[in-house]
């Protein structure tokens, strides 16, 4: 397979970091974008020829156009962009924190739109490219536990679907990944067992990222969430999910 030029936003931990590692290991050139410079430096040191670190805070979307252009210049083009940045602060059952909710909107959604719009504009001009957004099964329904996390992932799913509908005829693939519960820094506070490892998730993402579709990473999730999507609202409310 030919070496590709890839941007991974949200590369300092979790699935983003594993994606960078695995892309670099198979010979791709990867621009790793994240806020924490020390983590980026560690990651880049693993494959210095393949990984280019770019410190960036996704809550500063106004800096994206210039950085995006510079990354494309240094990579010598762009074939794939993966938006993997995401936050899910712990939210109490009776808590309504605007600050926490705004941080989720900024990182999970506004940052995604800033980066993926830039990529979509470039890809539509050149007629090729793959856009990957890391969504979530949490975007399937409005659950009680994480109102804004669910909302941002539902919005991201809809945004990516719209990009797919716009761009697929031009040969551009837009893929939405719904990983399901995955053990990362972001989910550490959930204390959930049986979660998929980030390494495993990244492997599965790389297998489906050029599909240009919405993808669950486990076949069982497709069935479970088809059922969850179709549970009547009144019943769903009483399930305390």
């Amino acid at each position: 397979m030919k070496s590709r030029k890839v941007i991974v936003v949200g590369a300092s931990s979790g699935m983003g970091r594993e994606l960078v590692r695995q892309l670099a290991a198979r010979g791709d050139r990867v621009a790793a974008v994240a806020r924490r410079e020390d983590k980026l430096a560690e990651l880049a040191a693993e494959h210095p020829q393949q990984i280019l670190p770019f410190p960036h805070d996704v809550t500063q979307p106004e800096s994206v156009p210039e950085l995006f252009a510079e990354i494309c210049r240094q990579l010598g083009g762009l074939d794939v962009i993966i938006y993997a940045a995401g936050v899910m602060p712990e939210v109490g059952a009776t808590e309504y924190s605007f600050e926490k909710d705004r941080s989720m909107i900024e990182v999970n959604l506004t940052g995604a739109v800033a980066w993926l719009n830039a990529a979509a504009d470039r890809f539509q001009n050149v007629g090729h490219g793959t856009i990957v957004g890391i969504g979530s099964v949490a975007g399937e329904r409005g659950r009680q536990g994480q109102p804004m996390y669910n909302t941002t992932k539902a919005a991201l799913k809809t945004y990516l679907e719209a990009l797919r509908n716009r761009l697929s005829k031009r040969g551009i693939r837009v893929t939405t990944i719904k990983p399901g519960p995955t053990a990362t820094e972001m989910t550490a506070h959930l204390k959930q067992t049986g979660m998929m490892g980030a390494e495993d998730a990244a492997e599965r993402i790389l297998r489906v990222m050029d599909s240009g579709k919405e993808k669950f990473l486990k076949p069982s999730h497709a069935i479970i969430f088809a059922i969850i999507r179709n549970i009547p609202t009144g019943v769903f409310r009483r399930l305390k999910l």
Binding site: C72, G77, L78, R122, N125, V126, G127, H128, G171
Partner: peptide
């Protein structure tokens, strides 16, 4: 006519 590139 399926190729494209972003350039100056």
């Amino acid at each position: 006519m399926v190729s494209g590139a972003d350039a100056f």
